[in-house]
Amino acid sequence: MEQDFVPRVELPHLQDNTTQYCDQSAQEGSPTLVSQIDDTDIWVGMSFKSAECVKAHYRQYAMKKGFGMKVRNSKKGTDGQIKYNMFACVWEGNYVSSLPNDLKTNPTRKIQCPAKICTSVHKDGLWYINTFNDDHCHDLSPGKSRMFEGNRRISMHVKRTIQINDDAGVRFNKSFRSLVQEAGGHENLPFVERDIRNFVRQERKRLGKDGDGKALREYFSRMQQLNSNFFYEIDLDDDFHVRNVFWADARSRASYEYFGDVISFDTTYLTNKYDMPFAPFVGVNHQGQSILLGCGLLSAEDTESFTWLFRSWLSCMYGKSPQGIVTDQCKAMKKAIQLVFPDARHRWCLWHIMKKIPEKFKSFLEYKSIKCDMKECVYESLTERDSKMHGMLL
């Protein structure tokens, strides 16, 4: 009789690369543990208790075979829940980087690898494998598969250990060495030192640790009680930690009504213990003075964070979009501006442009001459009105 193997939650005493399975027969009312196995077989019709179990199982299979895996595609049903997933080899696709491999830290190339599995949830609530393709068009590396980005992971026990060490002031390299010694060597760890650094940085950026997030919400609430025109929004993650923050007082909202034609947005300020970029919205009043039009704290400088912040700011300013916005040359910021402020004129900050002159031209013999010509072109060029007046005088 054919049996369905359903991955269960990993037990704390087991190693990270070992998963327990249970045999769920039709005659039995509940699953029964039948074995503890290290190898992971896959076949069409295999069932799992959840989408996460499918993903974990295919990751174990990928590590055993020697390739990296990724989520290629997902589809939701009418209820908004995911009903279909496709997992593929990381070499799937046809993208080739324009940069030569010797200039990249991690050179990659996608060569349309066909290996994949397609899964969907059925009426019985279980996830079934509908399609399974195990043909790869590249060499497999079982000994190195645990280091592929899609296969690396940090267990809850290790995360807790890292957090305790970080709170005690232990450095990253010392924490990593202790974990290596505990595991019996680098080859037994499913992560690298960089993963620890990234995890700690993300944790530091989360407002919510030590009650800071709660204190922030209470402070904003008090400010809104004192002045109903005080505006704030807080973006929370799945663990209810503060991810992004925006706020603006009554003066900022009133000033925007008169001086909101052009604004400047900058994220070059990192002066808080969370290493969260401080992002002020700045305008200029009729006296040429800078005025604050709102502030934000971001957990990451990506398109998603910028989009959330811009939409919060736009909601604060009653949906009135600026005519122009000046920023640095950030691609994620540019994309977010196109999504939230499609009619605004986006220009790059002059200071950021001029800062790159030494970087781009310092190697030239005529660098000083080039620098003077660039400054003259930028700072001493005629305006449109001056140009017309100059033409009339001639």
Rank of each mutant, 00 (worst) to 15 (best):
V9M: 13
I234H: 11
L99T: 09
E366G: 07
N133R: 11
F172Y: 13
R204G: 02
K123E: 05
L236G: 01
N106Q: 08
K356N: 11
I370F: 13
M317Y: 03
R204T: 01
R59D: 00
H241K: 09
S97E: 02
M1V: 10
S315V: 00
D373P: 02
I37L: 04
F341Q: 12
E92C: 10
S221I: 00
I291H: 04
C89I: 12
F278R: 00
V170E: 03
R194S: 13
I325D: 03
Y84N: 08
G185W: 02
K70P: 04
S30H: 11
W348T: 08
I337C: 03
G80A: 12
Y61W: 14
E366M: 08
H136P: 06
W43V: 12
G324M: 06
F265G: 00
F364R: 15
R197S: 09
T267A: 15
M69I: 05
Q112L: 06
C137Q: 11
K368F: 08
Q27A: 09
E359V: 12
F87G: 00
F87A: 00
L126T: 08
M63A: 03
G294E: 07
Y269T: 11
H138N: 04
R201Q: 10
W351H: 10
D41H: 01
N229K: 09
G211M: 11
R385N: 13
T18I: 14
M46N: 01
T19H: 13
K104R: 15
D249K: 04
